[in-house]
Nucleic acid binder design. Structure first.
Lengths: 207, 207
DNA sequence: GTCTATACATCGATAGAC
DNA sequence: GTCTATCGATGTATAGAC
C-alpha cells in the first residue's frame, strides 16, 4: 500500500488516530451486544450505554447500524487472519488441521467472539441479512482453505480410504460450528478442540 | 390419560376442537416468522398478517409471544418424535444412526423447520432466552439417545478403535447442526445426509 | 372469536446547540 | 466530538365494541 492511499484512507488529518481509542471501545461494545442479541435484536442504544456515550455520539463514528456491524466483522477478520495466516499454506496439510485444533482451543478463551459468529451465521442465513454475503464468502474461503489441506494429505497418502477432501472440508467446518452451539449452551459437556482432534484422528493417518 | 384430565385439558366445551384450525394456521405462520427472523426480531404483527388476522385476534389464541413460541416448539416436537420414535431404542445401534441419516434427508425437504432450529438454537444460547431451557433439555436428551446407540455399537465390537460413545454422540449432533448452517446458506454445496453417512462410515464397521 | 382503537415502550436516525 | 431533543416507525399488549 502506498503512502498516498494510506493517507487517503485515514483522511487528510489522520482522523482515525485521533478517535482510534473510542472506535475500539465502540467496536468492543458492539461485539458484545451483537453476540448476545444478534444484529437485528441488538440495539444501538445498548451499545452506546455500554461504551458510555449517547446514541448520537456513537453515530458520529459510524454512519449507521449496518456499517457498525461491518466494522465489527472487519476487525475480527483482521485478528483471526493474523492468527491463522501461518497455517493456511503449510506444505503439510496435517499442519493446517493442527492449526484448526489450536484455533478451537483458543476460541474457548473468547466466548464472546464464539457467540458472535454463532449467532450471526445463523441469523445471516436469511438472504436479506446485512451479513449474508459476508458469510457466503467466508464459508467459501474456509472450505477452499481446508479442502486444499485435505488434498495435500490425500496426495501424501494419509487420507482415509473412501474419504473426499472437499466433503471432509465441509464436515470439518460443520463440526466446528456445531460444537460451538453445544459449548455455548453448556461448557462443561463439550471440549471443542478435543472433539475436533478426534475427528481428524479418524480421518488422517498418524494425526 | 383419563377422560377427566383429557376433558380438563380441552376445557369444558372442547375449545381446542373448535379453534383447532385457526391455531394450526397461526402455528404455521409463527414457525415461518421465527425461522426467518428468530424469536426476538420476529414480530407478532408479521405473524398476524400472514395468517390474515389482527394482532389482537392472534393474542386471543395465545396469551403472549412467549407462549406462542412454546406452542410452536411443542408442536414440532410432537411431529419429530413420532418420526424418530422407532429408531430410538433399536437393538442394533447402527439402525439408530441410519435413522439419523434418514432424518437429515427428510430435513432437506422442510427448510423452514431447519431454519427454525438453526436460528433458535443459536439465539437460545443466551441464558435469558425463553427457549434456553428447552434447548438445554433437547440436547441432553439427544446426546443420551445417540450416545446409547454408539454404546451398543461398541458392545458389538463395531466402533472404531479409540472412539468414545459419548464423545461420538456430541460430534454427531454438532455435525448435523453445522451442516444445516452451510446448507441454509448455500444448498448446492452441501448434501447433509451424505455427509452424515460418510462420518458414520468412518466410525462404524460395515456401516 | 375477531375487530378497532389505543396505550406505552423502544427502535434507528437526524438536526442543531455547544 | 459529544450532547439534547425529537421524529417517525415499529414493537407488545390491553380495553372494549360487535
Amino acid at each position: 500500500m502506498t503512502e498516498t492511499t494510506e493517507r487517503a484512507r485515514r483522511g487528510p488529518r489522520g482522523e482515525y488516530a485521533k478517535t482510534g481509542a473510542k472506535r475500539e471501545a465502540i467496536l468492543a461494545a458492539a461485539l458484545g451486544v451483537f453476540a448476545e442479541s444478534g444484529y437485528r435484536a441488538g440495539s444501538l442504544r445498548e451499545i452506546a450505554t455500554r461504551v458510555g456515550m449517547s446514541e448520537a455520539g456513537l453515530l458520529h463514528h459510524f454512519p449507521n447500524k449496518e456499517a457498525l456491524l461491518a466494522a465489527v466483522l472487519d476487525r475480527r477478520d483482521g485478528d483471526d487472519l493474523s492468527r491463522v495466516h501461518i497455517i493456511v499454506d503449510a506444505e503439510d496439510g496435517a499442519e493446517t488441521l493442527r492449526g484448526l485444533v489450536e484455533l478451537a482451543a483458543h476460541n474457548a478463551s473468547v466466548p464472546g467472539v464464539v457467540e458472535l459468529y454463532c449467532t450471526l451465521s445463523a441469523e445471516a442465513t436469511s438472504p436479506d441479512h446485512p451479513a449474508h454475503g459476508y458469510f457466503l464468502g467466508r464459508y467459501d474461503w474456509a472450505r477452499g482453505m481446508v479442502g486444499r489441506a485435505f488434498e495435500r494429505i490425500a496426495r501424501d497418502g494419509r487420507l482415509r480410504e473412501g474419504a473426499d477432501p472437499a466433503r471432509a472440508a465441509i464436515a470439518t467446518l460443520a463440526l466446528m460450528d456445531g460444537l460451538q452451539v453445544q459449548w455455548l449452551l453448556n461448557r462443561d459437556v463439550v471440549d471443542m478442540s478435543e472433539a475436533l482432534r478426534e475427528y481428524f484422528a479418524g480421518l488422517v493417518a498418524d494425526f
